[in-house]
Design a binder for these strands. Structure first.
Lengths: 249, 249
DNA sequence: CATGGTGGCGACGAATGCGTTAAGAACCTT
DNA sequence: AAGGTTCTTAACGCATTCGTCGCCACCATG
C-alpha cells in the first residue's frame, strides 16, 4: 500500500466540506502521500504542483468543470473528480475536459485508494492515458475506443462498462461489481440491463470473444486476444460448460 | 484466504453483544483471519492496527459514526459497518465519514465473508490472487484452476467448493460447514448434493486423491500432494485411451 | 460375514442463467 | 414540441447447471 522508495507523491485534495476532507486527508497521509488540502477552486488553481489531484466538483466558488479544465491545462497531474450519485452528465463532461477518473459519493476509502493506485500504475507504465488490452485500445482522455485499429463509437454506459472490465483484463467481475462501478455505488435491483449493454458492446466491438461470459458468475475481458482471428463463432470462450476435454492437453 | 504465503490478515471485530460476536469470531478465525475483538468504541480506537475492521454502529459508549470517522482518521483499513435494517440514514452517514461498505443485520456469515473478500479484492490488498496447494493452483482473480499445469474448467459451484477446501488445506470440513460456506449460510436440506459435486470435481481434477474423504466426518484437501505420482494406477497423468472418465462426460 | 449406515456416481427433470429482440421511459438536441 | 438517442424493463427460447433419486460399493461394528 505504501510505495517505498522515492519521495512521497504529492496529493492535492480540493474539497470544501471539512467533515469529508479531514478524515480523507489523514487517511491519505497514512497511505504515504504528501497531502495538501484546499477548499475552493481558486485555491486549487493557486496551489503547488501535485501528482494527484482529488477534485470535488461541488465547489462554492468556481464551477467544477472549469476548475478541472484549467487544472488540466496547467499540469499533467492525475485528476480524479468526486461527483454526487446522480450527476452523470457532470461526471462525463469533467472527463471530457481532462479528468482521468472519477469516484461517486458516497465512496469507500479503500476504493478511492484503489483508484488512485490504478491511475498511478497506468501513467507510470508509460501508457499514459491509454488502456490497452490486446486488440483493444481505450483512450481515457478522449474516451475513444478502437478495436484492431478500427474506431468504435460507444455510449456512456457502454464505455464505462468496458473501462471497468479493461482495468483488470482477465479478472472475472460479478454483475454486482460491474453495476457498482459503472452504474451506481450501491446498485440494488435487477441486473438484466447489464446483459443488454454487454450484448450491445459485443456487437459494436465486432469481436465477440473479447468479452467473455463466465457462467453463473459474471464477465471478464479476454486478455489473450492478440490478433484478429477469423473466429466467426459466436458467444463465449473460457470456462465452457462441462468441458472435460480440458483434461487432455 | 491465504495470500500467497503472506501473513494472515488482521481483522478487528467491534461488537458489544457477545452472542453475536463469539460465533463471528470463531468463524472468521476459521476463515483464516487473525481476529481481535473489542466491545466498545473506546477499545476499538485503542486496538492494534488491523487490515479489516468490522464495526457495529450500535455501541454502548461512543456513537458509531464518531468511532468510524476516528478509525478512518487513523488508519486506511477496510471498514465495514454493521447496521440494523431500518437505519439507512446512519448507514449512509457512516459511508460518508469513511466506511467502505456495510452489511445489514441479520446477515449471513457467508455474505459477510463475501463482503470482506469483495472489499479486499477491490483494494488489491488481498491480491493473494493465487491459492496454491501442491499441484493445485487457483487464480482467484480470473477464477482459473490448474492441476499440474493443466487447466481445468469448473462450474460456479465446483469452484466455490474447491476454494472453500483450498482455503485451509488439510483441514477437515464437515458437510454442513462446506454447504454453509459454498452454498448458503443456512442450509438445512440433505447434504447429498455435495457428494455429487465432489464427484464431479474429482473427475475434472483428474487426481482423485486430491480431495480426500474422511469417513463419517467430511472432506479435506490433501496438502501433501506435491507431485503427480504415476504409481501403478492408470488413472493419473496422461489421459489414457481406456480412461473415459476423464475424457468424456 | 452379515448388516446397517455412509459414500460414490450416473441419470434425469427442474431450476436457473444467458442472449436476444422489442417496446416503453427518460433524456438530449433541434 | 418533435425527433432522435440511450437506458431500462419485459418476454421468450435456448443452454447449462443443480438437486434429487436410485443403485451399488465400501466401512465399521458385533
Amino acid at each position: 500500500m505504501d510505495r517505498d522508495g522515492g519521495p512521497p507523491l504529492r496529493l492535492l485534495v480540493v474539497e470544501d466540506d471539512t467533515a469529508i476532507a479531514a478524515p480523507l486527508e489523514t487517511g491519505l497521509r497514512r497511505a504515504g502521500y504528501a497531502v495538501e488540502r484546499v477548499a475552493t477552486g481558486a485555491a486549487a488553481l493557486a496551489a503547488d504542483a501535485a501528482d494527484v489531484i482529488l477534485l470535488d466538483l461541488g465547489l462554492p466558488d468556481i464551477d467544477g468543470q472549469s476548475v478541472c479544465a484549467e487544472l488540466r491545462r496547467r499540469s499533467s497531474a492525475i485528476i480524479i473528480v468526486v461527483t454526487a450519485r446522480s450527476d452523470e452528465a457532470e461526471r462525463v463532461s469533467a472527463l471530457d475536459v481532462g479528468a482521468d477518473d472519477y469516484v461517486v459519493k458516497p465512496f469507500g476509502f479503500a476504493e478511492l485508494l484503489a483508484r488512485i493506485r490504478a491511475n498511478l500504475r497506468r501513467t507510470q507504465l508509460g501508457t499514459g492515458s491509454h488502456l490497452k488490452v490486446g486488440l483493444l485500445v481505450i483512450d481515457t482522455r478522449s474516451r475513444e475506443v478502437t478495436v484492431a485499429g478500427r474506431e468504435v463509437s460507444l455510449t456512456a454506459k457502454e464505455y464505462d462498462l468496458l473501462v471497468c472490465l479493461a482495468e483488470d483484463p482477465g479478472r472475472v467481475y460479478s454483475r454486482q461489481q460491474i453495476l457498482e462501478r459503472a452504474w451506481d455505488a450501491h446498485w440494488y435491483g435487477p441486473t438484466k440491463t447489464l446483459d443488454v449493454h454487454v450484448a450491445a458492446l459485443r456487437r459494436k466491438l465486432a469481436v465477440p470473444s473479447l468479452i467473455e461470459t463466465v457462467y453463473g458468475v459474471g464477465f471478464r475481458l479476454n486478455p489473450d486476444l492478440r490478433e484478429l482471428k477469423a473466429d466467426g463463432a459466436h458467444v463465449t470462450g473460457r470456462t465452457g460448460p462441462g468441458d472435460e476435454r480440458a483434461a487432455e492437453l
